[in-house]
Amino acid sequence: DETGKFLVLALYDYQEKSPREVTMKKGDILTLLNSTNKDWWKVEVNGRQGFVPAAYVKFL
């Protein structure tokens, strides 16, 4: 149950560059965990948590 969690859509592919980031593919649906930083949002994708560039995702 994803109640209270926001979902975001990956607009572009992103390859993680550090262990704190996660890789996503364009079209992936991600669970948004934290968006307090304007540049990097914490998400969960494929069972992994990490950061992606905020400009690469949008709210569903």
Rank of each mutant, 00 (worst) to 15 (best):
K38G: 10
E16K: 15
L11P: 00
E44S: 10
N46Y: 08
R20H: 15
D13A: 06
K17L: 10
P19Y: 09
K42E: 14
L60I: 14
W41N: 01
A55P: 08
K38Q: 11
K25Y: 11
G50F: 04
T23E: 03
K26D: 02
T36P: 04
W41D: 00
R20Q: 14
L33E: 02
N34T: 07
M24N: 00
D1G: 14
V8S: 02
L32H: 02
A54P: 04
P53M: 03
K38I: 09
V45G: 07
I29K: 06
D1E: 13
N34S: 13
E44T: 07
N34A: 09
L33F: 04
L32R: 01
K42V: 13
E21K: 04
S35W: 15
L11K: 08
A10K: 01
N34R: 07
E16G: 15
V57F: 05
F59W: 10
Q49P: 06
D1H: 15
N46G: 12
L30P: 01
V45A: 12
T31M: 12
D28V: 04
T3K: 13
E2P: 14
L60D: 06
L7N: 07
M24C: 06
G50H: 01
Q49W: 07
Q15W: 11
Q49R: 12
K5H: 14
L60S: 06
L30Q: 01
D13E: 06
E44C: 11
T31D: 05
W40H: 03
V57H: 00
L9F: 11
A10P: 01
L32P: 00
G50L: 03
I29H: 05
P19A: 12
M24Y: 02
L32N: 00
E2C: 13
W40F: 07
A55K: 15
T23D: 04
V8F: 07
N34I: 07
K26V: 08
F6W: 14
S35L: 08
K25T: 09
Q49M: 10
P53K: 03
T36Q: 13
Y56V: 05
L60E: 07
G50I: 03
D13R: 02
W40V: 03
N37D: 14
Q49G: 06
R48T: 07
D39T: 14
G27H: 05
E2I: 15
A54F: 03
W40E: 04
K17C: 10
Y12C: 12
D1M: 13
G27M: 03
V22D: 00
T23H: 04
T36I: 09
Y12N: 09
T23F: 04
L11E: 05
R48C: 05
V52F: 01
I29N: 03
R20V: 12
E2A: 14
Y56A: 11
K42M: 15
N46D: 12
T31N: 09
F51A: 02
L7S: 08
V8M: 10
F59E: 09
V52T: 01
F59R: 11
L11I: 11
K5S: 11
A10H: 01
N46H: 11
V22L: 15
T3I: 14
P19W: 08
G50Q: 01
P19V: 09
L9A: 06
I29L: 09
S18P: 04
V22N: 04
G27W: 05
E2W: 04
K26S: 07
L30I: 09
K26F: 05
I29A: 04
T3P: 13
N37P: 04
L33I: 15
A55C: 12
K58Y: 11
E44H: 05
R20W: 15
G4Q: 14
K5M: 12
F59M: 14
Y12K: 11
L11Q: 06
K17P: 04
K17M: 12
T36S: 15
L33T: 04
L32W: 03
K58C: 14
W41I: 08
L33P: 00
V57S: 00
T3N: 14
S18I: 04
L32D: 00
V8N: 01
K58A: 14
W41Y: 11
L7M: 12
P19L: 09
P53C: 03
S35Q: 11
T36D: 15
G47I: 02
G27R: 02
A54Y: 03
F6I: 14
G27T: 02
D39H: 15
A55N: 13
L9H: 05
M24V: 10
R20Y: 14
A55T: 13
K26E: 08
N37S: 09
R48M: 07
L7P: 04
A55H: 12
A55R: 14
N37V: 05
S35M: 14
D13K: 02
W41L: 07
M24A: 02
D28C: 05
R20C: 13
R48H: 08
D39F: 15
Y14L: 01
V57Q: 00
K58G: 13
L30F: 05
K5F: 12
D13C: 05
Q15V: 15
P53T: 02
G50A: 03
S18E: 09
T36L: 10
K58P: 01
D1R: 06
K42A: 08
L30M: 15
G50M: 04
V52I: 09
G50T: 02
D1K: 08
L30Y: 09
K38W: 07
